[in-house]
């Protein structure tokens, strides 16, 4: 099947099996390796991209269904000069560890924060359930996001109990 994918604003021709997942095409054909292939079955969220601005798991999206959709990968959300607020908060709060989950985490939580500018801790946690992280234990990521909320604390020096 021949089709054109719109990836990070660029038209990209695709020729091949339309059942292949967007994740495979991004990583193997286009060398856009920001989205990670971790579970391959929808549970972990490491492969999340935005389709027309909405986060979805690219491992379960067949490319054949994506003609005409705006696909935004982690490579397309910012460049190093203009990090998004979510990326900045993650940087400032030093929450990253191995980093494998973060591309998906950034794309999910950027969308969530845009829709819910003043989330509670509990709301953030529920929103994060499809983004599994094996390293961090989440709570410091939540702290970073809470600092962005309109009732957030703003970036603070870490206070130790």
């Amino acid at each position: 099947m021949v089709l054109t994918l719109m990836i990070n604003g660029d038209p990209v021709p695709y020729h091949g099996d339309p059942r292949r997942s967007l994740l495979e095409v991004l990583r193997d054909d286009l060398h856009l390796t920001g989205a990670k292939d971790v579970c391959g079955e929808g549970f972990c969220g490491a492969c999340i991209v935005q389709i027309d601005g909405v986060p979805k798991v690219s491992c379960l999206l067949p490319v054949g269904r994506l003609a005409g959709a705006e696909i935004t990968t982690i490579e397309g959300v910012s460049n190093s000069e203009t990090l998004t607020a979510v990326q900045k908060a993650f940087l400032e709060y030093d929450v990253v560890q191995c980093g494998m989950c973060f591309p998906g985490m950034v794309l999910s939580m950027t969308h969530f924060m845009a829709e819910n500018p003043s989330p509670t801790r509990a709301e953030l946690k529920s929103a994060m359930t499809g983004n599994i992280c094996r390293c961090t234990g989440y709570e410091r990521i939540i702290d970073a996001l809470l600092s962005l909320g309109s009732n957030g604390l703003g970036p603070v020096e870490e206070v130790r109990p």
């Binding site: 390796t33 490579e75 190093s80 990326q87 993650f90 030093d94 990253v96 980093g99 950034v106």
Partner: peptide, 18 residues
């Protein structure tokens, strides 16, 4: 802060699988 965080957040870090 970690110096490798930025690239990890930008999806640029190249792990062996990449």
């Amino acid at each position: 802060p970690r110096r490798d965080a930025k690239d990890k957040l930008l999806g640029r870090t190249r792990y062996t699988v990449d």
